[in-house]
Simulated assay, not measured.
Amino acid sequence: MKAPNNCTVGILGCGWLGQALAKTLNAKSYTVKGTTTQKEKLKVLNELAIEANLVKIYPDHIKGDLKSFLKHLDILIIAIPPKINRGETNLKKGLENIFQKKELSAISKLIYVSSTGVFANGLNQIYDENSTPNNKSLRGKALISLENTIRAQKQIQDTFILRLGGLFENGGRHPIHFLSGKPNVPNPKAPINLIEKTDAVELIVKIIETKAVDQSVFHGVFPKHTERETYYVDKAKALNLKPPLFENSSTNNGKIIKSDLTQEVLDFTYAKEP
Results as ranks from 00 to 15, higher is better:
residue 247 E to F: 07
residue 126 I to C: 12
residue 174 H to G: 05
residue 164 L to I: 06
residue 174 H to W: 05
residue 244 P to G: 07
residue 257 I to P: 00
residue 159 T to K: 13
residue 148 N to M: 09
residue 156 I to W: 06
residue 265 V to H: 00
residue 76 L to M: 14
residue 153 Q to C: 13
residue 256 I to Y: 02
residue 7 C to P: 00
residue 192 I to F: 06
residue 175 P to Y: 10
residue 64 G to P: 02
residue 178 F to R: 06
residue 179 L to V: 03
residue 21 L to S: 07
residue 93 K to I: 04
residue 212 A to E: 14
residue 63 K to M: 07
residue 69 F to C: 05
residue 228 R to P: 00
residue 16 W to Q: 09
residue 20 A to N: 08
residue 93 K to Y: 08
residue 185 V to A: 08
residue 222 F to D: 01
residue 264 E to H: 12
residue 81 P to K: 03
residue 259 S to T: 07
residue 28 K to T: 10
residue 161 I to L: 08
residue 87 G to I: 08
residue 269 T to Q: 12
residue 66 L to R: 02
residue 242 K to L: 11
residue 179 L to K: 03
residue 238 A to C: 03
residue 184 N to T: 03
residue 153 Q to V: 10
residue 133 P to S: 03
residue 54 L to W: 14
residue 272 K to Y: 15
residue 214 D to G: 15
residue 128 D to C: 15
residue 16 W to K: 02
residue 3 A to E: 06
residue 21 L to I: 02
residue 269 T to C: 10
residue 213 V to R: 07
residue 79 A to T: 04
residue 85 N to Q: 10
residue 267 D to P: 01
residue 127 Y to G: 00
residue 249 S to W: 13
residue 97 N to R: 07
residue 133 P to E: 02
residue 152 A to Q: 12
residue 110 L to T: 08
residue 250 S to R: 14
residue 59 P to N: 10
residue 248 N to M: 11
residue 229 E to L: 11
residue 266 L to M: 04
residue 48 L to T: 01
residue 26 N to F: 11
residue 87 G to W: 01
residue 216 S to C: 07
residue 145 S to I: 04
residue 38 Q to R: 15
residue 86 R to T: 04
residue 247 E to G: 03
residue 108 S to T: 13
residue 255 K to Y: 00
residue 10 G to N: 10
residue 171 G to D: 13
residue 244 P to A: 01
residue 179 L to S: 02
residue 247 E to A: 07
residue 45 L to W: 15
residue 145 S to N: 13
residue 102 K to W: 01
residue 79 A to E: 01
residue 199 D to Q: 05
residue 27 A to P: 02
residue 117 G to A: 07
residue 36 T to H: 10
residue 21 L to K: 01
residue 23 K to D: 01
residue 162 L to R: 00
residue 95 L to N: 03
residue 193 N to D: 15
residue 7 C to Q: 15
residue 20 A to C: 08
residue 176 I to E: 07
residue 86 R to M: 09
residue 265 V to Y: 00
residue 221 V to T: 14
residue 119 F to R: 00
residue 186 P to G: 11
residue 72 H to K: 15
residue 236 A to V: 02
residue 168 F to A: 05
residue 12 L to Y: 11
residue 12 L to G: 09
residue 55 V to P: 06
residue 187 N to S: 14
residue 264 E to R: 14
residue 82 P to Q: 13
residue 58 Y to N: 12
residue 257 I to M: 12
residue 26 N to M: 11
residue 185 V to S: 06
residue 203 L to Q: 04
residue 48 L to Y: 04
